[in-house]
Design a protein around this nucleic acid. Structure first.
Lengths: 160, 160
DNA sequence: TCCATATTGACAGCTCACTGTCATTTTGAC
DNA sequence: GTCAAAATGACAGTGAGCTGTCAATATGGA
């Protein structure tokens, strides 16, 4: 077994590969979990961002909170609106940037998704250990800060 | 600020969000790193899987090693072949399952990608600390094992 | 030997990220 | 008050993952 150059010996390479895999596994598990509710991981996450805010937010604000681009979030929000899980409210401060909020059905579906997720999250937490999870969160935050500076690039100069 | 139900208080929820973000940041950083070589993160990763093996492997085997589906890997392999970075060799044991291997140009490009990655990986490793990285790798492996059982589902019964 | 099963590649179609571009609206400098 | 700049939504296109399906090839038991 010759391995004169093994680029995957570097701890950061191995960590990156594991992060890719865990990312995929989390999305797959989430999809399976909320599929019976007519949701996907991405839609569930956006609903979470909406639910978490004490007041309705425009899409751009949701995207910033999630570390994604406004276009990605907008598409998912539109899907959720088509499903009747979120609705748009007029924004007194901005005519175009409507505010996104959960409908009654949306609140109900989100609550049911949470009820599905909590036992699994508890199980994973117990399996991994609270302290290890807390340390991993700190580590990941540090790596991401070092990697991406801020994490996402809000529209740089458009229409120059 | 009312937050009667804050589903993101759960450590596993926060960890999952951080993993999603780090995944995105790693892919973005990788894309930026190898773009000058005409590569993307995904193509680079597939090249890594090919390079890592001491002997040429069929696409299905690469996919298994990477924890992805054969279809995803096949598409990227075809792209790499069109770029002239990998080539197919006849498989003595299977007429259709050709073996993927790096071309001379592929080896050269991969070596240059490694040269770009190593300093960044070293910097990240120093920033985060070797021990923390090693512990995070163990944690992630454990979570993924608990989540996905094996990690990927090779074609379940087709043609029933 | 022969046929059912598993494996593999190929193709189509989906979701979810991304970038880039444009029109509209808001904001702020003058 | 006016006009440039920034912010926002809308739309088009791309990359990368997924599932599902079909045909071709290996494999193994009867």
């Amino acid at each position: 077994m010759k391995r004169s150059t093994d680029p995957f010996a570097h701890p950061l390479s191995r960590l990156a590969l594991e992060v890719f895999r865990l990312n995929g596994a989390l999305i797959a598990a989430g999809d399976g979990l909320v599929a019976p509710l007519g949701l996907t991981s991405a839609r569930w996450q956006v609903m979470g961002a909406v639910a978490q805010s004490p007041e309705p937010l425009p899409t751009v604000q949701l995207a910033r909170n999630m570390g994604l681009t406004r276009q990605s979030v907008q598409r998912v929000v539109d899907d959720l609106a088509a499903q009747g899980l979120v609705a748009f409210a007029a924004n007194p401060h901005h005519k175009r940037a409507k505010l996104v909020q959960l409908t009654e059905e949306g609140k109900d579906v989100f609550a049911r998704a949470l009820a599905l997720w909590t036992p699994l999250a508890d199980d994973l937490l117990a399996s991994a250990g609270e302290r290890a999870v807390a340390e991993a969160i700190v580590l990941i935050e540090r790596l991401r800060a070092r990697l991406g500076a801020d994490g996402n690039h809000p529209d740089p100069g458009s229409t120059p």
